[in-house]
Design a protein around this nucleic acid. Structure first.
Lengths: 350, 350
DNA sequence: CTGAAAGCGCTAACAG
DNA sequence: CTGTTAGCGCTTTCAG
């Protein structure tokens, strides 16, 4: 019936001639209606409507220089905090007539660089990203020197505009809470620190606070990825006299995997050991036990980041926003009982 | 130091003159390297490298007509199945050098229309979407008549290219499973059916199968949203002699909320009543009780949808893919015990 | 208030 | 193999 090559959509010239006006007038009817007489404007819009016409952003972008498109570069959407972040950012963008181009990097700096390069080719007006490590990120330097508007989400960085929680303060709050439950030996679990400045800040916050509270110093245990527990490492850290009574995980997905690993090992949470996460993902409250965590509101971080980005694009400002965090008391962390580690005594060091 | 208005990035003409060749040659060095001598090509690329140049897609798109950008329109990323779908689709797109523009619609047909309109303005080469109701969707008709390449994800639709699980067969499998556990009265819970053709198909599959298996006919209970339980409705359906012994929820998020609502009401799952979901989200296995569900693999659906879309763009084909589903046996659905509804007897109808 | 003309950055078509 | 030329669709001066 209809040919495979469909006819191209009407251009501004056809509308102009159909309406008996110049192309400039058609353009103005859409972009600067105040410059036209009400009659002309309405006439043009009617004709456009009839032809089902709306101006092509491509020509418009090329000529005027603004694409009304933003970029969002996140580690992964499998982590609900980042999915929420997208929703917050995209909603804010949409409110200002911007579209969002998005990609994921899986915490891989090489993919981060490729992502920025690819997106930048589309002449985005600005970009929101979460990088592995804001301090030594080549891609951030490239981006800054290219002059593209740019805001970090989740990363804290003194030299760039960013929207994030205060990771150190949040970790502080968690350690204070765990201490208030009677825990004196706390271990911190995370993925590779060089791939997450957030994990680093959280560890630092935890260590500083433990020292200030005169707890045992916080040990650090590195999993091979950010969100999965290594069974061997978890087993190892349960051994010995200086075994921790609470495990503070650098994010909730890791905490969930740690808990299920512990359960497989026959270690009860929180009876034998307490576990806390970070991020406050909603599924934490459906788990058994419910997850103790720090809520870092993804939607709000995304919204704030996009807001900052738009301000930067429109007014050149380069402010940052610190989004408030909140302690979530769940059942996975409970009061420390001196004899709770009885279970452990039976484990023979191998 | 540097002025607020940074100098525009190098254009192809500057590179051309710097390299002592024509602009067309620079273009070819990037797009059709096989047309150039190795020497010229390398020389041009070196110069480009020095100037940190990469061709602007905007000019390229306008001239050549392809933007190498796809659109993805999903209900929400808060539901992990859709987040996975994005990951699958975007990864596939990236492999073919496409970027992904994305937006969410929160199951609102008006937002669906606005989303498509907005994205179409960017001259996408194709679009993947999940709509509320593929059968009577104005936006789908608009899209088809516009000639834009288009694939549905999750929706099943005989007249369009789509990537989805067989919802009726999947619901069939679930009912067969529940029946095998001894359940004879099954209730189906969902959001408004006119906003979800998937929920409709699943209900139909459940009803047909219940009839074939000579179970009691499946009752249907409508929640005000797709993913939250109405406490009053849940309470009501627990009353009476024909109270169901199993609740089949149209998605996992709803099932999770139903379970927590039941627990608040003092009804034990699965001891007093069994609950099943649909989607097979990964958090289902961390819950207590673990969730019985049908896995509808989001990543695979996204990947397949994007694959179909690219085929359609490149070869005009309009095939569909049925992605296999899988029953996930969790602890939320257990064998029916005749006396299990003792708990119920005590509830006084009000 | 409206029109004419130039050109954003790039690539396709055509020459050579 | 490489250069020349024209123009994708739009907006923006500048003139009226």
């Amino acid at each position: 019936m209809d040919s495979k090559r469909r006819k191209p959509p009407a251009s501004i010239l056809e509308i102009a001639s159909a309406a008996g006006v110049s192309p400039a007038t058609v353009s103005r009817a859409f972009n600067r209606p105040e410059l036209l007489s009400a009659a002309t404007r309405q006439h043009v819009l009617d004709i456009a409507e009839q032809h089902n016409f709306s101006p092509d952003r491509l020509g418009s972008s090329l000529r005027s220089g603004n694409t009304r498109t933003l970029g969002l570069v996140l580690p992964t959407l499998s982590n609900p905090v980042f999915a929420d972040c997208f929703e917050g950012a995209e909603k804010r963008a949409r409110q200002s007539g911007y579209s969002m181009m998005m990609t994921v990097t899986h915490y891989d700096p090489a993919l981060e660089a490729a992502a920025v390069q690819r997106l930048a080719g589309h002449r985005l007006e600005g970009i929101i990203l979460t990088v592995s490590d804001a301090r030594n990120s080549v891609v951030l330097n490239t981006l800054k020197s290219s002059g593209m508007a740019c805001v970090l989400a989740y990363n804290e960085c003194p030299t760039m505009s960013c929207a994030a929680v205060d990771n150190r303060a949040a970790a502080h709050d968690m350690v204070v809470y765990l201490a208030s439950l009677g825990h004196k030996r706390i271990a911190f679990l995370s993925g590779p620190l060089d791939l997450s400045d957030r994990a680093r800040s959280r560890l630092k916050g935890a260590r500083d606070t433990a020292k200030r509270l005169k707890l045992h110093s916080v040990t650090h245990h590195v999993m091979s990825t950010h969100t999965t527990a290594n069974s061997a490492i978890v087993t190892a850290l349960l051994r010995g006299a200086d075994r921790p009574s609470a495990l503070f995980c650098s994010n909730d997905l890791l905490a969930m995997d740690v808990i299920s690993t512990l359960q497989e090992l026959g270690v009860r949470v929180p009876d034998d050991i307490s576990v806390a996460g970070f991020d406050g993902i909603r599924y934490g409250t459906c788990m058994s036990p419910t997850l103790t965590s720090i809520e870092a509101p993804g939607f709000e971080i995304g919204r704030a980041a996009c807001h900052l980005l738009l301000e930067q694009i429109e007014h050149g400002s380069a402010a940052s926003i610190q989004v408030p965090h909140r302690l979530v008391r769940g059942a996975s962390a409970a009061a420390f009982l001196a004899n709770a580690d009885h279970h452990n005594e039976k484990i023979t060091p191998c």
